[in-house]
Design a protein around this nucleic acid. Structure first.
Ligand SMILES: [Mn+2]
Ligand SMILES: [Mn+2]
Ligand SMILES: [Zn+2]
Ligand SMILES: [Zn+2]
Lengths: 135, 135
DNA sequence: CTTGGTATTTAGAATAAGTCTAAACCGAGA
DNA sequence: TCTCGGTTTAGACTTATTCTAAATACCAAG
C-alpha cells in the first residue's frame, strides 16, 4: 500500500493526512495482528523523522475509530486492540499464542460453531450491544 | 441465601470460607448486576465489622474465579465485571443504561439473533477462545 | 491452653493503559 | 510574511489492578 493511497483513504474519511496519521494508518491497514496502541507505537516510530508521542498514537487511533477507518477490539481486559478489517467478522483468540484471528461473520451462520477442524474452541462469548425496550 | 449455604458452596469449591469471602460470595450469588470490583466493595463493606480492603476484594474475586464459583465478564475495556451465573450464556449490553443482561445460550441457537422484540441489537461480537492447530 | 506455622487480610505503594494539559509546531490562507 | 486553527509533543495525571510487607486469624501439635 502506497503512502498516497493511504492519504486518499484518510481524506475520504474526512481525516487530514498528517505524516503521523499516514504512517499509523498504513501500518494498521497492512497488518492483521490486531495490535495494541503500544505495539503500533513500536512498529511505527522508526518510520518518522521526528519523535512520535504516545499521545499522538492514542489520538490518531481514536480519530481513526471515529472516522470509521479502524475499529476497537476488546478481547481482554488489560488493553484495547485495533483492527482495520471493517468487514463483518468476529475473532478467534488462540489461548496458546495470544494471536487473534479473524472469523468472517458468514462462517458462523450456524451456531455450535463449525469453524473447520483447525480450531479447537474452548469457549466463546457473544456480546450484544443495543437497546432494551422494557425496563 | 443464608450465610451457611454460601459457606457450603465455598467449601464444595475448595475455598476456605472466611467472613470476607462469604460476604462477597453471597453478594455475587444474589445479584444479577454483573458488578465491578469496586461495586462489590461498596455493596459489601458495611456488612463486615472490620474494614474491608480493596486488595481483599480483588483477591477474593480472583479466588472465586479460579475456583469456578464466578466468572469474569469483559464487555468494556475499562474494567472487569464479575458474574455468578455459571450457566452457558452470553450478554446483552444496553448501551443506554450500561446494564448487562444475561442471554441463555440456547436462546441464540439460530444466528441472526432473534432475542425477542424487546431487544434492538446495534451490534454484537462473538469472541472464541481456543487453540489453532496450523501455525 | 500455649505455641508456632500457614493462610488471609490490610493499608498503602507500585504498575500500567489511557487521558489530559499546556506549550510548541505546522500549514493554509490573508 | 503574518495569523490562526488544528496537530503534536513531553510529561503530568487518572484509574483499575497488582504487589508488598506487616498485622491478624486460624489451626494443629505439644
Ligand atoms: Mn484480518
Ligand atoms: Mn443473571
Ligand atoms: Zn479482526
Ligand atoms: Zn451473565
Amino acid at each position: 500500500m502506497t503512502l498516497s493511497s493511504v492519504e486518499d483513504i484518510l481524506i475520504e474519511h474526512g481525516v487530514k493526512p498528517t505524516p503521523q496519521r499516514v504512517v499509523i494508518a498504513k501500518y494498521m491497514l497492512e497488518t492483521h495482528s490486531h495490535p495494541t496502541a503500544d505495539e503500533v507505537l513500536q512498529a511505527v516510530e522508526s518510520k518518522l523523522p521526528v519523535a512520535l508521542s504516545r499521545a499522538t498514537v492514542y489520538n490518531t487511533l481514536n480519530t481513526l475509530v471515529q472516522a470509521g477507518v479502524i475499529r476497537e477490539v476488546v478481547t481482554e481486559a488489560e488493553r484495547t486492540r485495533y483492527d482495520a478489517n471493517m468487514t463483518e467478522h468476529h475473532h478467534f483468540v488462540d489461548v496458546k499464542s495470544g494471536k487473534i484471528l479473524d472469523i468472517p461473520a458468514d462462517q458462523i451462520a450456524h451456531l455450535k460453531p463449525l469453524l473447520g477442524n483447525n480450531f479447537k474452541v474452548h469457549s466463546y462469548q457473544i456480546t450484544f450491544f443495543g437497546e432494551v425496550k422494557d425496563q
